[in-house]
C-alpha cells in the first residue's frame, strides 16, 4: 500500500501544475482510433515493401555478381584454353584461330592481364630441335596477338619442347594433345573482364 504513495503524490503534483498552465494552446485532437490502425498497417506494408525491394536489389546484385563471376571465369577459361598444332608445324590452325580471336577480345577488355605463352611439342623429332619448334609455336601466337594491336609488353614466350607432355603415351592421340600452346596468367588474374565490358 505505502509503495504506491510516491505515484499518487506525483499524479497530484502533475494535476496541480496542469491547472496552473491553462493559457497554453490546445493540444491537437488525438487522431481517431480507427485511422491510427490504418496507418500502422500502411507502415507495416511500406516497411515490407522496402524490405522486399532491398532483398530484390540484393538478390539482383548477387545474381549480377554471380553472373560477373561466371563471366570472368568464362573469360579466364578462354584465356587459359590450350590451342593445338599440326605435326612439325607452327602455323595456327583454323580451330586454334577461333580460340585466339576470343582471347584477343578478353585481353582487350582486361588490360591488366599478362600472359606467359608456352610452346610444347610431341616427343617425335630431336629434343633440342623440338625446343626451337615450341618456341616458334609460342612466337606464332604472340605474332597473332600483336596483329590485333595488343601490347607486346603483356606477353612472355617460352618453350618446353617435348619436355612436359600433357599425355604420357606414344600414340597419335597423345601426340595431338601434346602439340600445343599453354597460356599462364602471370598478372591481373583478379582483373579479368568478359569481352566488350571495357
Amino acid at each position: 500500500m505505502y509503495r504506491r504513495l510516491p505515484v499518487v503524490a506525483f499524479l497530484l503534483i502533475a494535476v496541480t501544475v496542469g491547472a496552473c498552465r491553462r493559457e497554453s494552446p490546445e493540444p491537437p485532437p488525438p487522431p481517431p482510433p480507427v485511422q491510427q490502425t490504418d496507418d500502422d498497417e500502411a507502415a507495416r506494408l511500406e516497411a515490407q515493401r522496402i524490405a522486399d525491394s532491398i532483398a530484390a536489389v540484393r538478390a539482383a546484385e548477387e545474381a549480377a555478381q554471380r553472373q560477373r563471376e561466371a563471366a570472368a571465369a568464362a573469360a579466364r577459361a578462354i584465356l587459359e584454353q590450350r590451342v593445338h598444332f599440326d605435326f612439325d608445324e607452327s602455323r595456327i590452325r583454323t580451330d586454334a584461330e577461333q580460340v585466339l580471336r576470343q582471347k584477343v577480345e578478353v585481353l582487350r577488355s582486361s588490360p591488366d592481364v599478362r600472359l606467359r605463352i608456352e610452346g610444347h611439342t610431341d616427343e617425335r623429332g630431336s629434343a633440342e630441335y623440338n625446343q626451337a619448334l615450341g618456341s616458334r609455336r609460342a612466337q606464332a601466337i604472340l605474332d597473332y596477338f600483336l596483329e590485333y594491336g595488343l601490347s607486346e609488353s603483356r606477353f612472355v614466350i617460352t618453350s618446353f619442347g617435348e619436355e612436359r607432355p600433357l599425355v604420357n603415351r606414344s600414340d597419335e592421340e597423345a601426340w595431338a594433345q601434346n602439340r600445343r600452346a599453354e597460356f599462364i596468367i602471370t598478372a591481373g588474374a583478379d582483373q579479368i573482364n568478359p569481352p566488350g565490358s571495357n
Partner: peptide, 9 residues
C-alpha cells in the same frame, strides 16, 4: 649456346 625467341634466333 643458342638463344631463341622474340622472332630472332
Amino acid at each position: 649456346f643458342a638463344v631463341n625467341g622474340g622472332g630472332r634466333s
